[in-house]
Amino acid sequence: MQNKNFKNRLWIYSSLVFAIILDTYLFPEVVMQWKPLLVLLTLIYWNMALPDKVGIFEALLFGLIMDLLNGSVFGLHGLLFVLITYICQRFFYQFRVSPIWQQSVILFFLFFVFKMAFAFDFYDVTLGIYVSDSFYLLNAFGFALVSSIFWTPLFYLLRELRRRKIKL
């Protein structure tokens, strides 16, 4: 049982680490702003599919790793990851049974809010950068859209991985 549990966690953690690697991979400037946050999508999937195996600890851990890699305010990714995964898990009875396109729409709004949280000037150093900045809004929209589009293939990919490799 312990061995099986360890293997399950290994697969889950490997997928999350792989998602982080893809997230930190350098793309051209335009793509960088719009590319989906795969680690959060992966986290949401595992959280929804196996809520007893992936929870707050994983959300917090991978959020803090993202903070270190991204150079954002330390704890911000962690906070948002915890809140988003909590929302997804809290309402996963409704979320899980809804069609995939509806899930994508819900994720679109979640990711939009997620991106907007990074527009706040925590260090109080900027003048003239607001949440209503049109360039940032466009980027946030693009980011949320691409992330929600990526949800479908990622969902089926991870479901396949879960069915093949995760033994309950």
């Binding site: 707050i56 917090l60 959020g63 803090l64 704890g75 906070l79 915890v82 809140l83 809290r90």
Partner: peptide, 18 residues
């Protein structure tokens, strides 16, 4: 689902870090 108390602790911890 996640225990709300744990979520609150995690949120407070993150806010402290921030």
């Amino acid at each position: 689902a996640m225990k709300p108390s744990r979520v609150v602790i995690a949120v407070i911890f993150c806010l402290f870090l921030m």
